[in-house]
Amino acid sequence: MADTRPTAATNALARTAVEEDTGMRPRELLSGQRTCVWIATADSPTPELAYETSDLLLEAPNWSADSTHLVLNGDGRLWRLDLAEKSPELVEVPLHGVPPINNDHVLSPDGTHVFLSGMDGHLYRAPLGGGTGTRLTGDDGLLHFLHGVSPDGDTLTYVAIPRHTAGAPGQLALMPAEGGPSRLVDTGAGHVDGPEYSPDGAWIHLNTEAFASVPGHAQLARLPAAGGPLEPMVASDTVDWFPHLSPDGRFATYVAFPPGTLGHPENVHVDVRLVATDAWERPLRTFPLLGGQGTLNVNSWAPDGRRFAFVSYPMTDH
């Protein structure tokens, strides 16, 4: 059988085509910068450094369903970091028929597949162990940024943004996990991002500018998955993004950007906050770091509901 793996030249052509169409390209480390993958717990103020490299910018860890490894993206590709090894090695997950990907990826509840956001603006599904991916979204004039899958594995929740429309706000959208027509959800004015189902499937948590008095002041909120109005979770002076609930629903993490931040930029001083879901206004732990984009874009909780992963990007003089 002929070798159908993409060659370096094929990858380069695919990346060029994607960049020309959407303007998206894989992020890279700055000179003197490194990637640090951390594991924190609800019980300790000190996170554990799980992996460090100055060769590759890694983003957005997902924790595998069997607790053995993390799944991250870097250089437009998908990577597996085995946590059982004393000196973890990064291994690429071979994907075919999938363009360069960004940091919006989630694992299926049964742990067998990964749902991916391609830098071409489409959503894909592929075997988590590697293999051929399937495009799920149609040519509907939208960019699709994946963030969640329902607990039963049937529905994806993502952010939809019109193509070639600079500055257009993101809208909440739902679609079947096997592909099919999408449904836009009315969340009022202002950009929404990071939509993710609660573990019981009853709510969708996200960040929104619907309650903002100044441009860009994203805050955390939720709405009933079956339909209904937004409910704010906490009011703060910081710009808050990407709420992620633990599998048992007891805890949540999110990224707090400095006041006045627009969007979720890279290489800024942010806090990763851990809260109890019955008291979002009182952080249990705060982890300051250099990061933002890539730090905690997707759910990174371990199945045990006690551990979670995040990424920082320190400079050598920090």
Score class of each variant (00 low, 15 high):
125 R>K: 15
69 H>L: 01
68 T>L: 11
267 N>R: 15
244 H>S: 13
126 A>D: 11
51 Y>T: 02
129 G>I: 08
140 D>V: 08
89 E>G: 11
248 D>M: 01
44 S>G: 00
263 G>P: 08
254 Y>P: 04
37 V>W: 01
164 H>C: 03
172 L>K: 02
40 A>Y: 04
78 L>T: 04
242 F>C: 13
297 N>C: 12
25 R>K: 14
54 S>G: 14
21 D>A: 15
80 R>S: 14
76 G>R: 07
193 D>I: 01
163 R>T: 09
257 F>R: 03
189 A>M: 05
171 Q>K: 13
144 H>C: 12
128 L>V: 03
56 L>D: 01
211 F>R: 00
4 T>E: 14
74 G>R: 07
157 T>W: 01
251 F>L: 14
157 T>K: 00
132 T>P: 08
254 Y>V: 04
171 Q>F: 06
53 T>G: 03
22 T>W: 10
225 A>R: 06
225 A>E: 09
256 A>Y: 02
79 W>E: 06
300 S>N: 05
23 G>S: 10
317 D>K: 07
92 E>I: 04
223 L>N: 03
201 G>V: 04
54 S>Q: 10
156 L>G: 01
312 S>Q: 03
275 V>I: 15
91 V>Q: 13
160 A>C: 03
48 E>T: 13
275 V>A: 12
195 P>H: 02
222 R>M: 11
143 L>V: 12
253 T>A: 05
66 D>S: 05
151 P>N: 10
232 P>V: 12
183 R>C: 06
17 A>L: 15
175 M>L: 14
298 V>Y: 00
262 L>Y: 05
153 G>W: 03
266 E>W: 11
240 D>V: 02
10 T>E: 15
153 G>R: 04
258 P>D: 05
209 E>R: 04
140 D>E: 15
284 L>H: 09
318 H>G: 06
138 G>T: 14
260 G>C: 08
28 E>L: 13
32 G>F: 07
216 G>W: 02
116 L>P: 10
7 T>K: 09
99 P>T: 10
196 E>A: 07
13 L>P: 00
30 L>V: 04
